[in-house]
Computed example of a mutant assay.
Amino acid sequence: MNKYNLLRISTSRNKRTFLSAVLVISCVISATSCFAQVKPDTNAVGNPFVRDIYTADPSAHVWKDGRLYVYPSHDIAPARGCDLMDQYHVYSTDDMVHWKDHGEILRASQVEWGRPEGGFMWAPDCAYKNGTYYFYFPHPSGTAWNNTWKIGVATSKNPASGFKSQGYIKGLESMIDPCVFIDDDGQAYFYYGGGGTCKGGKLKDNMIEIDGEMRKMEGLEDFHEATWIHKRNGIYYLSYSDNHDVNGKHNQMRYATSNSPLGPWTYKGIYMDPTDSYTNHGSIVQFKGQWYAFYHNSSLSNQDWLRSICVDKLYYNADGTIQKVVPTGAIKSK
Rank of each mutant, 00 (worst) to 15 (best):
G167P: 05
E117V: 08
L84M: 15
A160P: 15
I210M: 07
L106P: 07
L203K: 02
I151H: 07
L300A: 08
V180S: 12
G196E: 14
V111M: 15
R51P: 02
D177E: 06
E112C: 09
L68N: 00
S156V: 14
H102T: 15
N47C: 01
A154G: 11
P264D: 03
I229E: 11
N5M: 15
V90P: 13
I25T: 06
P124G: 01
H61D: 00
A154D: 02
M207W: 09
G103A: 12
I53W: 00
M207D: 00
T275D: 00
Y133L: 09
I270T: 06
Y4V: 14
G234S: 12
Y315M: 09
K15N: 14
P264L: 02
V246H: 15
I9F: 15
V45R: 13
D101Q: 04
R16E: 12
N297Y: 03
A108G: 09
H296D: 01
M96W: 04
G289N: 00
M121V: 05
D205L: 06
C27A: 14
T132A: 01
H102W: 14
V325L: 00
G212T: 09
T328Q: 11
N233A: 06
I284R: 13
R307V: 13
A79Y: 13
Y133D: 00
R13N: 10
N280P: 01
N14A: 12
D177C: 12
